[in-house]
Design a protein around this nucleic acid. Structure first.
Lengths: 239, 239
DNA sequence: CGGAACGTTGAGATTCGTCAATCGGTGTGG
DNA sequence: CCACACCGATTGACGAATCTCAACGTTCCG
């Protein structure tokens, strides 16, 4: 259930056998959520945090009159609301882009784990801090990059994150977002999103069919996006 | 030196006398940085975290060819790079908008503090999680709101954050950003920033002279921004 | 006095949004 | 099997938001 998480954490710092056992010993509840439904409701008060086991999901905020902005895309191995452990009330909703399975860990379990293993506490802390770094990169994209660069950046990021949990297949990945949802992620209208995708296709950077993206030219995509994946912190450094 | 921080933390959860003493006992080094200079260099490897004691600063990312995007504005009592404690390498720079004084706390001090006081560890964690929530709100603004609403949102946020550390004076606050820097914050050109400010002036929502903003109509500003400050987590809730 | 930094204004170009229509695939009831 | 509805992708036309370039104003200071 938490193998993806262990796999990701291990890329960042070594885990002792005791720590690994403690992680695998976390008790929680499995829940399945259908595509298109909320995993977490906006402004929910939470007493557990949810680890995404399978599927893809998106955190979002909305304005009063409806417009929605996704602020991060979650992949398996990600906690979708670990910050709720210290926030207690969530400031956003989470939508299931595809059918999703989550593992809900009660906060008292996380509390006990982090008090017993301060090093794991810091690794959990790091998870939320990487979320923050992802948000910053998206701010750079939304504030300073045009359509193609913004889309390219998102694809680069998702590819590396999926690769870290071994969910890519030779430059291919599943991306179960509709173009409308993708627009709500990039800060575009649906129409503009479609036209932006076409630009990347015409430049032979990607193909995109049936929810599957193939990256034809990784270096070209990285150059267009001015992408540097260091912020994902997928390298070993003691915490 | 850390009174602003204690003041803010106390709004979120009660601190025991021992915890307060431990915070006040943190050892570090004071450093002054002139307006317009970097407090932290992009991609710096850090072995301390800096608490902003006075002044205002901004975290930023840049593209290769120069465009800069600020991702958060720091006020006194904020750590400007607490996430460096677990990231180890920063993913952004920090610019001093005004003359700034920072208190640099070595990571080994923070490590000892957080291992001795898990509750303080969670409050520090919360600090970085609120940063994350701020980023999300800015993503909503950059992705889905037009000029006036975006600016209004920023002013609402800053007013509440400054008020939390008692640095406002009856609907007034210092805002030592140039219009150019403000544009780099809102994702606008300098010209458009100027015109957006004028719109808020014409609507009698604010005045803005000599680095000082006065909010003439708080409710109007909140309505325009569709602002809800809950994400700042300035209410008491046990962590 | 002159320069530098910041704010302001005008004009024209570009990006992106909105509205409206069409296309293609899929599922369903008759 | 067919007609139809629905959803998502695509296209065209037009308008709005925002950018760029260029100039000018204001304040401060050496």
């Amino acid at each position: 259930m938490i193998e993806f998480l262990v796999r990701k954490l291990t890329r960042r710092d070594d885990l002792s056998p005791a720590e690994q056992a403690a992680l695998r010993g976390l008790r929680g509840r499995v829940r399945d959520v259908d595509r298109g439904r909320d995993i977490i409701e906006m402004r929910a008060k939470v007493d557990h945090s949810s680890l995404l086991v399978s599927g893809m999901a998106g955190r979002y905020l909305t304005l009063h009159d409806g417009p929605r902005q996704f602020t991060e895309i979650s992949v398996p191995g990600d906690f979708i609301d670990l910050h709720g452990f210290v926030m207690k009330q969530l400031d956003h909703g989470v939508l299931a882009f595809s059918d999703c399975r989550v593992f809900e860990v009660p906060h008292h379990e996380i509390l006990a784990l982090t008090e017993a293993y301060p090093h794991l506490a810091r690794l959990f802390w790091l998870e939320t801090v990487v979320d923050s770094a992802i948000h910053r990169q998206w701010l750079l994209a939304l504030g300073r990059q045009d359509g193609p660069a913004r889309l390219a950046r998102l694809l680069c990021e998702l590819y590396l994150r999926l690769e870290a949990v071994e969910l890519t297949r030779r430059r291919r990945m599943d991306l179960p977002l509709t173009q409308s949802q993708l627009g709500e992620t990039l800060g575009f209208s649906t129409v503009h999103t479609n036209r932006t995708i076409q630009i990347l296709r015409e430049q032979r950077l990607i193909t995109w069919r049936d929810q599957e993206v193939e990256i034809l030219d990784w270096d070209g995509l990285v150059a267009l996006a001015e992408f540097d994946g260091g912020y994902l912190r997928l390298v070993k450094a003691p915490v």
